[in-house]
């Protein structure tokens, strides 16, 4: 396959940045999207040019490091799939592919396609934890959890914190991410003691980071590689209302 790549290049956070076009021949349809970028970078290194910086780690679709807005869609055209699990057979020979970083004030670009997602870490620090007493592990069956709650909590817990929800949101809101954590911990008995303090603290931190507000359009859920459902946001809203009313 022969491709034209339009890639966002930005030297550092202070740099203004621009789109740069690259022609790439001999792309195998069996390559993953990141392997295709590896090929480009090998060539750039041989030409003594600066390789394109992009985030990646496990390349198994579970770590949440890879990102990339591909032709306007976070993680590219394949549903419920991270960029590292996207293969070039989803594209056609001669395609022009636009590759951009997540765009949000709370996710400043570090270099090229790499953005700083520590805003998510600070939202977690604000309340995304439970107080577990130390000592020997409690007997597993001592705290019963209804099966439906366990299912919903686990669905929410599959969030890998990649930030695609923020990238896709017309308001650059972090609601789906925050709501996944609120739902995950709020549905389980272990999460009850801090439940209402957690939701106010995490929403406050979310606002302080400079994310936008939620307009319930569902764009986030359409691109989420883990299929976090929209109802998590409503669960967050319900918990926050309860916390505000006291």
């Amino acid at each position: 396959m022969k491709l034209t790549l339009k890639i966002w290049r930005q030297q550092n956070t202070a740099d203004k940045g621009r789109m740069v076009s690259y022609e790439l021949d001999d792309v195998s349809p069996d390559m993953s999207f990141l392997e295709m970028l590896d090929i480009l970078n090998e060539r750039l290194i041989l030409e003594d040019e600066d390789p394109v910086a992009f985030d990646h780690d496990c390349r198994e679709g579970i770590c949440g490091m890879c990102s990339l807005v591909i032709d306007g869609t976070p993680h590219g055209p394949e549903k419920a799939t991270t960029t590292c699990q996207l293969h070039m057979r989803k594209f056609k020979d001669g395609d022009v592919i636009t590759i951009e970083p997540w765009r949000a004030r709370a996710f400043p670009v570090i270099k090229d396609l790499v953005v700083d997602r520590t805003a998510f870490d600070r939202i977690i620090q604000a309340g995304g934890y439970i107080s577990a007493p130390t000592g020997s592990a409690p007997e597993a069956a001592a705290i019963p959890v209804p099966k439906d709650d366990a299912n919903d909590a686990f669905d929410a817990a599959t969030c890998i914190g990649c930030g695609a929800c923020v990238a896709a949101c017309p308001n650059a809101s972090a609601m789906l991410f925050t709501a996944a954590k609120i739902t995950h911990l709020g549905l389980l008995p272990q999460g009850q003691p801090e439940r209402y303090d957690r939701v106010t603290a995490m929403v406050d931190q979310m606002d302080a980071e400079g994310f936008g507000g939620c307009t319930n359009t569902g764009e986030c859920t359409a691109v989420c590689p883990k299929g976090i459902p929209l109802e998590t946001i409503s669960r967050l809203n319900a918990d926050l209302l309860k916390a505000y009313r006291g």
Partner: peptide, 10 residues
């Protein structure tokens, strides 16, 4: 975004 953000949902 340079690529017109696609509308995926609503």
């Amino acid at each position: 975004y340079a690529a017109r953000p696609k509308v995926h949902e609503n």
